[in-house]
Write a protein that binds this DNA or RNA. Structure first.
Lengths: 165, 165
DNA sequence: AATAAATAGTTTAAGCCTAAACTATTACGT
DNA sequence: ACGTAATAGTTTAGGCTTAAACTATTTATT
């Protein structure tokens, strides 16, 4: 019996492996994320959410509506409003009216934004490749496959537990 | 070929598997974290960082110094100050003077804090077990092992890349 | 057409988090 | 002992994020 298992003295764990896995998952994400944030700040004077939003738009030539950005980036709409405002002020993205709907618009990369993102994306990929440099191609594939199962299971049980209360 | 792979059209990736893995890792972490935050808020009216700090203290019967908490939780010292202030105000932890060093003190759980954490930890474990419910025990072990390699590699190359600039 | 409900996006208040500057204390080198 | 450097912790300014309340517009119902 190891340390982590023993310490929940009053609440003996039935599945300590799951808890350990969760802590490790968090640690890995946080380590890599910290590296990426640091690189974006030092080399491009920008932030991860700004980069993420540009990345979403780079994959969508026709731009994306705010709620599409919100869903894809898994953050709230208010958050998207703030980040978009900044990027518009910097001239990296633009708001384009949607013909049939005066409430909505599409956010698109400007040429300047596309150029800047291209530079950043190249560096970014380098950081990520380096982050997983300790794994073989096969291990990367295995990790990807197993996390795929986690993702599907998490999505499928999203709002199932709240009802049990 | 799935969606994630196709989308980096204009920036042909040499190691697209690493990028895909990173995106999936982020997604999984975020999905589970959102569930946990939501549960802590709805059922215990608290937040994840508060829970994490209590969790650290529960494993350290003699308490921890601020910088130890900072290092273990991988956040800045100023952050620890703020969270600790709140928990002290709620009576869940206490600051205890360190005999030989008037700069430092130890943060310890109060009996009330220990009790409250115990309740939360039990629920928390349930959420985590459920989050990984789509995996077999063996798959959990594999995931844990592979993430261990990622973690070690990330830690070993922490400040090696900045020098190359 | 009139009303109600849903949708798109923004604003607000509050908490988290960081980097950098700061205070207080301790350790070290001479 | 004295001056400097290192350490422990806090404060400050600013960016990120959320939930909830809000405005404006569109869709559905009657």
């Amino acid at each position: 019996m190891d340390k982590e298992a023993r310490l929940h003295g009053t609440t003996p764990a039935e599945h300590p492996e799951a808890l350990r896995l969760w802590l490790r998952l968090l640690t890995c994400t946080q380590l890599i994320e910290t590296q990426v944030r640091s690189g974006l700040r030092d080399q491009f004077d920008t932030t991860l959410p700004r980069f993420d939003l540009l990345a979403q738009l780079e994959r969508a030539p026709d731009g994306l509506k705010m709620n599409e950005l919100s869903r894809r980036m898994m953050v709230t709409g208010g958050n998207i409003t703030g980040i978009t405002d900044q990027l518009v002020a910097e001239g990296l993205v633009e708001r384009v009216e949607v013909p049939g709907d005066r409430r909505a618009y599409r956010v698109k990369l400007t040429p300047k934004g596309r150029k800047q993102f291209s530079d950043m994306a190249h560096q970014h990929e380098g950081w990520i490749v380096e982050a997983f440099g300790g794994l073989t191609e096969k291990e990367i594939a295995t990790l990807h496959r197993l996390l795929g199962k986690v993702k599907e299971h998490a999505k499928s049980t999203m709002n199932t537990s709240a009802e049990a209360a």
